[in-house]
Write a protein that binds this DNA or RNA. Structure first.
Lengths: 135, 135
DNA sequence: AGTCATTAATTACACTTGTAGTTCGAGTCA
DNA sequence: TGACTCGAACTACAAGTGTAATTAATGACT
């Protein structure tokens, strides 16, 4: 028997900044039509509908969104995992900006932003759950 | 007397991914000539010299790098602060991908990457130095 | 002074991205 | 059935980005 090959995580499509904002609307809803996302983003981003439709169409082409027709309407749903994509883009930033190290990334927020006590506690709790941390 | 206006930090130029890699070489050296950066990046990135010269020239145009002529040679130096730019680009990512929250950013590394004990300890130490942490 | 090598400037090109207008096709309504 | 509305498709354009070749200018060397 040949050795069991390691299953590689699928490559994430290259999602641009504007496309990220669109994807987050679909991830938040699971599956929805374009009108709903257009209504939401029209408010928060002040994009015109054709702008958002373009971004949706490009995401479909990239394989990040899929769709099913229902009458004349399309129902779109994400084809990629949010957490997986979030990690990929975060890792890319850390590699490029911080030489692959996570500590300086965290430091930039601790040193240059006002994080709430709750945020700090939350971060601390996360680390406490790692080996070597208090229980 | 009018109230003292708050001094805003300078806007950071929009530095692209490839340009980041170039900037980090100049930040690491403080001031240097193009040949040195070209030699370094030729090895690590396998870029041809004209590619790197283009990126340098664009960074000069963006205000991220300045230069002084010495004979026919230019000595370049960064005009923007690395930590400041790193924070700006990191914050932009967190806002776009994590809705402005730092905890999910850290979680993505804790959950999806193998961080060394040393890394974890370093992160923990940072947080310990924040109010409410053990001394 | 002429030649050569080096450095920066200029040019190129394809692709990506942000933003949006216009057209087409299908469903709905009177 | 025709008109209208809506949703997607198509089109547009400017700017930005990645990658690199070519040309021009300047200093160094013989």
């Amino acid at each position: 028997m040949p050795p069991k090959t390691r299953i590689q995580p699928p490559q994430t499509p290259a999602i641009s900044d504007a496309e990220w904002i669109v994807m987050r609307e679909f991830w938040a809803r699971g599956e929805t039509n374009s009108a709903e996302v257009i209504a939401a983003l029209g408010k928060t981003q002040h994009w015109k509908p054709p702008t958002i439709m373009t971004l949706i169409t490009r995401l479909v082409k990239k394989g990040a969104l899929g769709f099913e027709r229902q009458g004349r309407e399309y129902r779109y749903r994400p084809l990629v995992d949010e957490a997986h994509c979030a990690h990929a883009v975060s890792k890319s930033l850390v590699d490029r900006v911080f030489g692959g190290r996570v500590a300086p990334l965290l430091a930039t927020f601790l040193d240059r932003q006002k994080l709430s006590k709750k945020d700090i506690a939350e971060l601390r709790q996360m680390l406490d759950q790692k080996p070597g941390g208090p229980k």
